[in-house]
Simulated assay, not measured.
Amino acid sequence: MARFLKIADIMAQTGFSKSFIHAEIKRGNLQTAKVGRLRVVSHGAAAAWLKSEPMEPVATAAIEADKAPDLMAILGRLDQMIEILEDIRARAGDGAR
C-alpha cells in the first residue's frame, strides 16, 4: 500500500479541482512533500486537511441559499473521505507491526 497520495489521487477521491488543491498547498493548509519532481501528500496530512475548517468551496456554498443541497453533498463526500483515509491509515498501521 502506498504511504503517500498524489495530487491526482486527492482530486479523484474528493472531487476538488487541481487549482483548489494547489491553492490550499500555497496557503499552507495542506502539507506536502517532494519525491523527485512529484509532490505527494501523506495519508495523515490528507485526513487532517479534510477535517480542517473552513474549506473555501464549502464556505462559499454555505453563503448561497440555492447551493444548500450542494453543501450537503460536499459534506457527505468529505465525511466519506475521512472514513476512507482513517481506514487506510489503520490498515497501514496494522501491517507495520
Rank of each mutant, 00 (worst) to 15 (best):
D87F: 00
L38W: 06
E56S: 11
M55S: 09
G28T: 03
I84G: 02
D94R: 13
A62S: 12
I10A: 03
P69M: 12
L50E: 00
K67Q: 14
A46S: 04
L38H: 11
A48W: 00
K51V: 01
I74G: 05
S42D: 04
R91V: 04
S52H: 03
A62R: 12
G36Q: 06
F20G: 06
I88W: 00
I63F: 14
K26Y: 10
G93D: 14
P69W: 13
R77K: 15
F4N: 06
E86M: 00
K51S: 05
D9W: 04
A90M: 06
E24G: 08
I74K: 11
F4E: 03
Q13G: 09
K51C: 04
I21L: 14
R3I: 09
L5A: 08
V41L: 02
R91G: 10
M1D: 08
W49P: 00
Q31R: 06
M11C: 08
W49Q: 01
W49K: 00
D9E: 12
R91L: 12
T60N: 11
H43K: 08
G95L: 15
I63L: 15
A47Q: 06
E86F: 00
Q80I: 03
N29V: 07
L71I: 15
R89V: 00
Q80N: 06
A96R: 12
E56Q: 13
K18H: 13
A45T: 02
A33C: 04
A92V: 08
T32N: 03
E86G: 00
R39Q: 11
L85W: 01
E83I: 05
I84H: 06
D9K: 05
E64A: 13
K34A: 07
A90L: 08
K18W: 09
I25H: 03
S17Y: 09
A33W: 05
L38C: 09
K6W: 02
E64G: 08
K26D: 14
I63S: 15
A96K: 10
I82E: 00
A62E: 15
E56K: 12
G76V: 03
F4L: 06
F20D: 08
A33H: 04
R39P: 05
E64L: 14
K34L: 07
I25R: 01
L85S: 02
A8Y: 08
V35W: 06
A12Y: 03
S52C: 07
I63V: 15
S19Q: 13
A59E: 13
H22S: 11
D94H: 13
R89N: 00
I21G: 09
I88M: 01
D66C: 10
I82H: 01
R3H: 13
G76T: 03
L50W: 00
